[in-house]
Design a protein around this nucleic acid. Structure first.
Length: 261
DNA sequence: ATGGCTGGGAATCCCAGA
């Protein structure tokens, strides 16, 4: 089975690029983040024509997660246990559309969009750390079955996962607290698979649209595939599809793909 | 072997992203 994760930065703006890649890549299950739409706005027909069914969780133009599968899609869940809510000061906190779980081809897949954090003194940063801590707690329930926690974690875990740790726009991605919260996702036996197969420094999954970051090779590794022990044992390879950052109409993230027995 | 942000909406500026 081939499983991929991709922060698409709007599924409506990216539909043709996503479908083109699905046609070429022989992907069985694609977890998407930042679809930026409600379910009724999702361009479902194109996916269905390629043989995929799609589970969608979107509340508005922000965030939004989905899973497309051509190997079945069961037991859909739109949040994990104790997933934190967020609201601006004075507003009612809302559990945002940042997690979607489903069993596809016998694998429990969670499509995850971890909060950005915005700034070290912003409430969004505490929300980010809490989201990661609660996800770690919730992951215990799935540790003994084949489970993949995939998506945009908005953390560059190692100094070599970012072109410059002094990049002020990524300050919430490189703190000791954010990195510890990311690594704690391994507490229940989960392994981050991109590191096993792609250990090279400067291997990135995201390049900002601004400042010529892609042509300059200035990116970050922030999209990952955590696998429970039963699933990690089946991993054959991981690929980061850097070519998908090229050309007109690219997302700022590229797909990360794992091949499983 | 690519390109100087981009997307969505309340819309002709604002919010969010990282």
């Amino acid at each position: 089975m081939r499983l991929a994760t991709w922060n698409v930065n709007s599924v409506r703006a990216r539909e043709e690029r996503i479908l083109d890649w699905l046609r070429r890549s022989e992907t069985d299950v694609l977890a998407m983040q930042e679809i930026k739409c409600k379910p009724e706005q999702f361009p479902l027909a194109g996916f269905q024509e390629l043989g995929y069914e799609v589970a969608i969780h979107g509340l508005n133009q922000w965030n939004g997660v989905a899973i497309a599968s051509r190997v079945g899609l069961e037991d859909v869940q739109t949040s994990f246990a104790a997933q934190p809510a967020f609201g601006k000061p004075g507003q009612e906190p809302v559990v945002e559309a940042r997690a979607l779980g489903a069993v596809a081809g016998g694998v429990r897949v969670w499509s995850l969009y971890v909060p950005n954090g915005r700034g070290l003194n912003d409430p969004h940063y505490a929300y980010k750390l809490d989201f990661l801590a609660r996800l770690r707690d919730a992951s215990a329930a799935w540790k003994d079955e084949p489970t993949a926690l995939v998506g945009d974690f908005n953390v560059a875990p190692l100094p070599t996962d970012i072109w410059s740790e002094e990049d002020s726009e990524a300050e919430t991605h490189v703190t000791p607290e954010a990195r510890a919260a990311f690594h704690a996702l391994a507490d229940h036996g989960y392994e981050e698979l991109s590191r096993r197969f792609l250990p090279a420094e400067g291997t990135y999954t995201f390049w900002d649209y601004k400042q010529l970051r892609f042509p300059k090779g200035e990116g970050m590794r922030i999209d990952f595939i955590y696998a429970s022990e039963p699933l990690a044992a089946r991993a054959q390879d991981v690929t980061i599809v850097r070519d998908e950052r090229k050309g007109k109409g690219a997302s700022d993230h590229v797909p990360v793909v794992v091949d499983l027995d």
